[in-house]
Amino acid sequence: MSLKTDSKLEKILRAGHLAVTSECGPPRGTDLSKVEEKANLIKDCVDAINVTDNQTSVTRMCSLAACIKIKLMGLDPVLQMVTRDRNRIAMQSDILGAAGFGINNMLCLSGDHQSFGDCATGQNVHDLDSMQLVQTVRHMRDEGKFLGGGDIAGPPKIFVGAAANPFADPFEVRVPRLAKKIAAGAEFIQTQCIYNVEKFEKWIGLANDRGLTEKVFILAGVTPMKSAGMAKYMKNRVPGMDVPDEIIKRLSDQPKEKQAEEGIKICIETMQRLKEVKGVAGFHVMAIEWEEIVPELVKGAGLYPRPEV
C-alpha cells in the first residue's frame, strides 16, 4: 500500500475499508462556530468531511476557511473547489494555501451555474473545467510544478477527487466520462445522490467491466429525504437528479410526521444494498442541513465504528 498523501481518507480506502464521508455547508456569515457545530455532529462517524464551495451558487463563507477550521479541530476536511469562480492563478494559489494548512483532500467540480444563486448577474470564470482542475492538482503534486512551469517549493500533497453523476444525460458517456476523469488523475469519486439504485448498479457494472473501479475509489452518494415535498423538489428542480416515482410514493404514503423516518429508512436500505456491490468503496452521506442524522445513517448501515488507521 503506497500512500501519496497524509490523507486519512486515502489511508482508509487503500487499506480496503469502506470509507464514509459527509459534508458541511459553510455559513452565510462569519460565524465559524457554525462550522464547528456541524463538524462535531458528524466527526465520530465519518473519515473525512467535505466542505462545499458556494453550493448552488449562493454566496457563503469560503470553503478554504471552513476547511482550515475543521483541520484545526484535528479532523480531515475535503476542500471542494469549483471552477466557476476562480481562474487558474486563484485555484493554484488556493491549493497551496490548503496544503499549507495540512488539508489533504480536494474534490474538483465545475459548480452549479450562477443563475441558480444569489448573484445571477455575475460573470462566471471557467478558465479550466473540472477535469482540467484534477489534472492541475495532480501536476502540482506529482511534478512539483506550477502550470506555468515553475518549481513549487513544497508541492501540495493532496488526495484528488472528482464527482460523477451516473444519472445525468447522455447515459452512454457517463462511464467514458468516468474513464476520462481517472485518466486526468482522479483518485476518488463521490457520486451524485443515488435514489435510482438500479441505474447506479448498471453504471458501476459498466465501470467494473472496463476495470475502472480498480483504478479509482468510488464513494456512493446518498442523501436522506426529509419529506415527500423534498423528494418532489429534487426530482423536478435539481439538475441531474433522478428520483424514481416509487421513492416519492413511499414517502407520500406516510403521514407528514413519519416521512422523515421513512426517508432515513430508504437511505439506510440503499447503503446496505450498495455495500455489497462490487466497485463501491464507500459512501458520501450528504444530509443537507440535517447533519445530526448522519450518525444514525452510518450506524444503520453497519458502518460504525469507523476503523482506526
Binding site: 465545475s110 473545467d129 466520462r177 439538475p239
Partner: peptide, 9 residues
C-alpha cells in the same frame, strides 16, 4: 466546459 457534459445535463 471543454470536457463535458457536466452533471447538469
Amino acid at each position: 466546459v471543454l470536457n463535458g457534459p457536466c452533471g447538469g445535463s
